[in-house]
Design a protein around this nucleic acid. Sequence first.
DNA 1: TAGATTGTTAATCGATTAACAATC
DNA 2: TAGATTGTTAATCGATTAACAATC
Lengths: 209, 209
Amino acid sequence: MPSDKTIGRLSLYRSLLSRILRAGDSHIFSHELAALAGNTSSQVRRDLMAIGSNGTPTRGYDIRSLIQSIGECLDAAGGERVALVGVGNLGGAILGFFAGRRPKLSVVAGFDNDRDKAGRVLYGVRCYAMEDLPRVIDQQGIRVAVITVPASEAQDVADRLIRAGVRGILNFAPIRLRTPAGIYVEDVDVTMSLEKVAFFARQSLTHKG
Amino acid sequence: MPSDKTIGRLSLYRSLLSRILRAGDSHIFSHELAALAGNTSSQVRRDLMAIGSNGTPTRGYDIRSLIQSIGECLDAAGGERVALVGVGNLGGAILGFFAGRRPKLSVVAGFDNDRDKAGRVLYGVRCYAMEDLPRVIDQQGIRVAVITVPASEAQDVADRLIRAGVRGILNFAPIRLRTPAGIYVEDVDVTMSLEKVAFFARQSLTHKG
DNA sequence: TAGATTGTTAATCGATTAACAATC
DNA sequence: TAGATTGTTAATCGATTAACAATC
């Protein structure tokens, strides 16, 4: 099974390749893709090996078939239905961000504490009350969820999602979720990221003069 | 200089410790913090060493002074002023998310292509036209910026920010920015993260049954 | 063919973990 | 004191990079 990081890079390669394809090119060399992705050609070749690469020494890789191979690796055959818990500002932005971006990955249900949101369509997604979570997750066959609730509620939400059958969580709350083995959690901690940027921006200045 | 990952963990430790402090505890052992942060006590001790740790074998670490030490490491003495380019849905959510969260890190200027936004206060931040970017960045002494524009515009925005004096960028566009040495870029690629979650959620199922 | 690139393995590098004397 | 934890270094692990024969 490919590593966490390899999968992440394959996802990046696909976005980059889609843009290249729209620009008109049909083939690409490993060092060209590496320059776009910000890594080495060695690594690109090794990553593409993981999905059964199709390059030739003279023309490089066929972009179309590369995108297809990456899709066969990353995408679920029938598409993946996703739930989002916490339909606030951040949740709404995430919904807007994903809308139509990946046809195989669609957010089909939103849940929120606020009862007034239940039954409505917000940011393009149908919203439900928290008490309907187990039923909706089960009926829709949802296995992936996004958590955009405050840190104080995130662990409880994660527990409920996992009980309902969710196997992968994208967590925006700035805590580490405690989950049983076999559950994949990816944390996106925006505050942490900005603090890192601020720190190293400062270092680069003090370092120079 | 501490590594990228160490700084990220210190930021996480600080959020976790602030929550603990509010809950009433005054001291914490490395293995307790490790459990909260999802890593090993060895690593916690090594990370805290980097900021001059203050633990004792009998009582562990004093939470208050730990939070202060982390602050002295992470925060700029006079606070850091941040700009955000792309005051759309995602940008607005980020602004709402940061509002009042870190007193030493405040977004003080928003920039957008949309001329109608210039001069207004949106999501709590004063907005400017793109042509005012060099002047505002310079006058306000801004060294850190957040990019929440579409991928097609991100590189151009980054170039402008760097020319204006920005040294660190938090990039939400799904491309890798090309930047000169000494500029720190942190990528937050939400689509990539969700694709990773979907992939490993699926693997955990096929692996088990 | 000559030359550049691919697929793939070996070498390197860095980060994490394990270990342990010192300490409260 | 005995016992657990700290600060710190050595061992381990995994990921990245370099190298190179095979290929177009």
